[in-house]
């Protein structure tokens, strides 16, 4: 019985070519283990399937397993669509692309061209949404830094407003959220310097994002400019907005569409971006306040 199952599974093995193919498939499996799905049921299945595919390398390109992975992702993501972070959705498109590559027996150009387009489209939609909503008006990012507890220590360093006061405002906002009173508000504290510097950063970020989208949608496939812009965007953005999942999938797509010459720089960026996990804000606060 076991031999029969084994033979059946082996029938769907696609040997991955060393180098490019092996790199992107194994990288994708690793990200699927780390942060590919949402919800315990899908996560358990991903961890088991993808870890075994990585450990027993000949299954890393198994069409049947990739078919199972994308089916689980599609089902689990569709059930919780309005809760999913966008990088999980982007990752689902990427896994769909890899699965189609295996089943339809496409050449590697299929992956390269599509991953370049995917980066460009994601960046373009991110820019369009920012323009449609209030991102261009002064105050969007300023507000974020004042009421989002992930950035409150940065606000403290930039403004010298005591941390206790910032957290007190957070408590007031929690209270406000429970009150059924129209036009009620909490007044926050900041400085003009903070408002100006954050607005400059906000506009600069949008320009870079737009530039990345243009270079990826309209640029040549072997242009280094697009790769440099994406790497700068990832490092510049994700150290402040620590969304490691988004940076990882963007860099993986970057690797998939890049030339062999620029690929090592993406790997270096991936290594550098792992340091997002260092609690910089808390460490700086500790150094500033601890009596050595």
């Amino acid at each position: 019985m076991l031999t029969k199952i084994h033979t059946f599974i082996d029938k769907y093995n696609v040997p991955l070519k060393p180098g490019y193919e092996e790199l992107i498939f194994k990288f994708s499996l690793m990200l699927l283990v780390l942060d590919g799905s949402t919800g315990w049921n899908a996560q358990i299945l991903m961890r088991i399937t993808c870890t075994l595919m990585l450990v027993f390398g000949k299954y890393a390109g198994n069409k049947l397993f990739w078919g199972i992975i994308i089916s689980v992702l599609l089902l689990s993501n569709s059930l919780q669509w309005y809760m999913l972070d966008n990088h999980k959705i982007l990752f689902m498109y990427w896994v769909l692309l890899l699965t189609m590559y295996l089943w339809l027996e496409k050449d590697t150009e299929y992956i390269r061209a599509n991953s370049k387009l995917l980066i460009g489209l994601v960046m373009l939609f991110a820019v369009v949404q920012k323009v449609l909503n209030e991102f261009l008006t002064p105050g969007f990012l300023h507000g974020r830094f004042l009421f989002d507890s992930r950035f409150m220590l940065i606000t403290h360093f930039l403004t010298d407003i005591p941390v206790e006061l910032l957290y007190k405002s957070k408590q007031s906002m929690t209270m406000l959220n429970a009150l059924p009173i129209h036009q009620s508000f909490v007044q926050l504290k900041s400085t003009p310097l903070m408002a100006t510097s954050i607005y400059i950063f906000q506009v600069f970020g949008l320009v870079v994002e737009f530039l990345v989208s243009i270079l990826f949608l309209g640029g040549k496939k072997d242009s280094n400019a697009k790769d440099i812009s994406l790497i700068i965007f990832c490092i510049g953005t994700y150290f402040i907005f620590p969304v490691i999942g988004f940076s990882s999938i963007l860099l993986l797509l970057g690797i998939a569409q890049s030339t062999a010459k620029i690929r090592p720089y993406y790997i270096i960026a991936f290594i550098v971006l792992q340091f997002i996990k260092v609690p910089w804000q808390e460490l700086l606060y500790y150094i500033e306040n601890a009596s050595f």
């Binding site: 966008n86 991110a126 949404q129 449609l132 209030e134 507000g143």
Partner: peptide, 29 residues
């Protein structure tokens, strides 16, 4: 984008890549 502009869906979710585009958030009491 249609649902976030003409209905109550937040731009942050739903696959339109509108994260960090608005501070507006639904609040239920």
């Amino acid at each position: 984008m249609y649902n976030s502009q003409f209905d109550t869906l937040t731009p942050w979710k739903g696959g339109g890549f509108g994260m960090f585009s608005t501070n507006k958030k639904a609040n239920i009491t």
